[in-house]
């Protein structure tokens, strides 16, 4: 297993290389650069000179391949460069913002799995019953409405109308209990809920569908013929098999959830990777764009790898050598 993981991790390197090339090219295809705005500032007398100096200092006058390999060379030494707009090392910025996004995404993922799997399983057990019909209807509704619409709805209901949960930031500033556990959790709940809603609906459907297929399988009949009772059959035989495709999907979605957080972070003014990467792009902050995009790519790849590893544990028919 360990050698498998190492091999897979090494296998990610070529993929990452291609991704960085594409990002690099696309980034330079965007009109303008970080310093052009200076030229149009009427109060700067020697704008052109400053511009040229900045361009030169940051190596932007060099050809793209040279710039690219410079960046790679630094990257291999663990240096992601200095953000133009925030004047801080990119690695330090990521270290500050990444945990917030991770917290948001992981919480949303936990909400999704903890809620949708039992619901889907229960729906499948009592298929076409009143609960199944009602919850399936709601699930389709949730799934077909974009997450940010729900975010606004949640803010309107839970924050604005009933004043139950805060709707912005990670902590309440300027109070003695600012940043304590309850404060952080209450700030986390709303964005995490908004982020999880579409996934919740989707995974409920997925669990329901998989379980329905498994419930009619021969080995479930065998389990009944052995005299096993409902709960054991449902969890040990049905769910244990139905969960395999869910794990595969879960890995694929992990990266998506990460980027899905981008929009929601804006709505909830959540200081995470979304905010960082949007600002980077608006400012043509090349080192920060490369750093954040690389990170997004890595999360997608890690998600896939994680799914494959989990899958190998969940399904003995998969060989990982």
């Amino acid at each position: 297993m360990a050698t498998y993981i190492i091999r897979r991790l090494l296998g990610l390197i070529p993929t990452l290389f291609v991704i960085t090339v594409i990002v690099f090219l696309l980034m330079h295809a965007m009109p303008g650069n970080a310093f052009e705005a200076l030229v149009f500032n009427p109060r700067l007398k020697n704008a052109a000179a400053i511009y040229n100096r900045l361009v030169q200092e940051n190596g932007l006058n060099q050809s793209l391949p040279v710039q690219y390999f410079d960046w790679i060379k630094n990257l291999l030494q663990g240096n992601l460069g200095i953000s133009y707009s925030l004047n801080m090392p990119v690695s330090e910025l990521i270290a500050t913002y990444l945990p917030n996004t991770l917290l948001l995404a992981v919480t949303a993922e936990i909400i999704i799995l903890v809620v949708s799997i039992p619901i889907g399983l229960y729906q499948a057990r009592n298929v076409n019953g009143p609960f199944d019909v009602l919850s399936s209807f709601i699930a389709v509704l949730f799934y077909s409405i974009p997450g940010f619409v729900f975010a606004l709805l949640l803010i309107y209901l839970l924050s604005f109308t009933f004043n139950l949960l805060p709707s912005s930031g990670t902590v309440t500033p300027g109070v003695p209990w600012s940043g304590d556990f309850a404060d952080r959790v209450s700030h986390l709940l709303l964005p995490a809920l908004a982020l999880s809603l579409p996934g919740l609906a989707y995974y409920t459907r997925l669990t329901r569908g998989n379980s329905l297929q498994v419930i009619v399988a021969d080995f479930v009949r065998t389990a009944r013929a052995k005299g096993l009772r409902g709960p054991r059959i449902l969890f040990r035989h049905v769910l244990r098999n139905a969960v395999i495709p869910i794990i595969a999907q879960f890995g694929l979605d992990l990266g998506g959830l990460f980027s899905g957080a981008v929009i929601l972070e804006q709505i909830f003014t959540w200081p995470g990777m979304g905010e960082l990467s949007i600002n980077a792009n608006l400012n043509r902050d090349y080192p920060l764009i490369l750093g954040t995009t690389l990170l997004f790519a890595i999360t997608v790849l890690i998600g896939n790898l994680l799914a494959d590893i989990l899958l190998a544990f969940a399904d003995p028919r998969i060989r990982y050598d």
Binding site: F219, R224, A314
Partner: peptide
Amino acid sequence: ERQMSDVRGNEIGMIFQEPMSALNPVM
């Protein structure tokens, strides 16, 4: 149903045609 489940596998055992699909693949 409960009494019946005490009979199944205990007083009456059953085997099926397809031994592959009749066994749980992940157990």
